[in-house]
Design a protein around this nucleic acid. Structure first.
Lengths: 131, 131
DNA sequence: AATACCATGTTAGAAAAAATAACATATAAA
DNA sequence: TTTATATGTTATTTTTTCTAACATGGTATT
């Protein structure tokens, strides 16, 4: 419980998140606008991000790199959310479904050959899920 | 590599550290002046604190609460440092864990102290959207 | 081809946070 | 009492972040 709490704790200013995710402030705010993340706000209205937020942003970046657009990313996030509710644990069926959606979205997106950066996972810096 | 690296990573602005430790900015800077902590600096010269820094500050606060003055705290810190080098991990690790536990308990206490929403755990510190 | 939309860049102006530095002060030590 | 400690307070400047608006290159649609 407390580990989850820590990961959900809003601690980081946007500058740090920019560095960790290699996203611009504009992008981060845009994704918030589209409800992909919902960072907390400080008293003075500054966004404060949790490690969970950073995770989400890293995943967004990864999906973007794969040529998936906002609509697709939203779908992926929604599916993940509902899947988590149902089978509170790891995937297998959900994984297959997810791949299906990904393929679909990738087709529609006419992927261009972007050198696929390997996913910059938070595990470089933080304890993730397992530990 | 990762665990220590993560905990040593400078992520937090001073405002967060103030809330986590319940120390004033003045105090935190004063302890830095006395070399009890050495937070990193951002490009623009802002102090960025690691979780290790927060740990140290929590311990400082604890010792202060016990009536120990700066000189005493310095000594304690020095002893711990040399102990870490000499008797390697066994002692220091358990000690770090102890502090971690203490911190968790504090957090838990803060949670309990207030019936809160899932993301509202820190709502005395932050204004969370939709609250 | 022309148009519209999407995701992001850029810029301006305002507000908040944080830095340094100086001076103030209550308590403890000498 | 005088001095030293540890922290408060205030002023000023710099950095960071915010919102909002407009700009733009690439896709998709018509």
């Amino acid at each position: 419980m407390s580990r989850e709490f820590r990961r959900a704790m809003p601690l980081l200013p946007i500058s740090m998140v920019m560095q960790l995710t290699e996203l611009t402030a504009r992008q981060i705010r845009y994704y918030e606008e589209h409800k992909l993340i919902e960072p907390a706000r400080s008293e003075g209205n500054r966004r404060m991000f949790s490690l969970d937020d950073v995770d989400a942003l890293l995943e967004i970046r990864e999906l973007l790199d794969q040529g998936i657009n906002m609509a697709g990313i939203k779908k992926v996030f929604d599916m993940r959310k509902t899947n988590n509710v149902k089978s509170s644990n790891k995937l297998s069926i959900s994984d297959a479904e997810l791949r299906a959606i990904l393929r679909e979205e990738m087709q529609q997106a006419q992927i261009m050959q972007k050198a696929s950066l390997r996913q910059g996972d938070l595990s470089r810096f933080f304890q993730v899920k397992g530990e």
